[in-house]
Amino acid sequence: MELFDFYDQDRWPHVFCPGCGNGTVMNCFFRAFNEIGWKLDNTVFVSGIGCSSRIPLYINSDAIHTTHGRAIAVATGLKLSRPELDVVVFTGDGDLGAIGGNHFINGCRRNVDLDVICINNNIYGMTGGQASITTPHDFMSSTTPFGNKEYPFDLAEIAVAAGANYVARWTTKHVHELTKSMKASLAKKGFNFVEVVSQCPTNFGRRNKMADATALLDWFKKSSVRRDKARAAAIDHVDLNLAGQITTGEFVCRDRECYHERKGGKPHGDGH
């Protein structure tokens, strides 16, 4: 498939700002999708609300752009009603980790066969730059004009702890690694989670002395540490900012049975 066949050109121009990381994520995803040989007619894209959640609307396939935070819950119903379809969720840090946090952790735990890609730009992009659950401590946003008093979530570590089958985190600076992890995620059954730390120059960078995309990409490069090394380097790796680093890599790759693969079986306590 050519890149242009992947997109629904009737919907152009897109809404993303110049320098936004969403385009990088889309292109990496296209490559992963194409290389693994998935078919657009057999795939449904699901999203919530946000800049990142607009992505499914540009792809030339079935797409459902749901309410804010609910993409995983909608995707769960869809997948269970049509297990033969491939279901991919695009979401943002706010959509997934704040308003949709309950669906996120329970989605990881439940392990329905879904691929969830979260574009974590550390901010609420679409609504104009308010602090999100991943805005680093002390950083500026329109609702933290004196610096963020709170500490951020580590979405990938939450996914690991909550039981996702596959978890990886990269930044938009790591296009090859990201593409590889997306491919690994698509190839695997179960609830697979790929977090991409991405740049929002308009609403995050601008308020934090990194007004253009390259400044943010440089920051990602400087701060990224592979998770195996990061564990030793910083005990407090949960905190993106205090530890001064973004841990990257493949966090977990396991093979728990999918929710809908369990047919019958022996209930716990049977025969006692």
């Binding site: 449904v44 749901t66 609910r70 909608v74 769960t76 119903g77 869809l78 009603s81 329970n106």
Partner: peptide
């Protein structure tokens, strides 16, 4: 399916309905 809350319930049935 038993979901994690009622928002998830109504969201899930919307998804299933689009599956037909």
């Amino acid at each position: 399916i038993q979901m994690e809350d009622e928002i998830a319930c109504v969201s899930a049935i919307v998804g299933a309905s689009w599956g037909g």
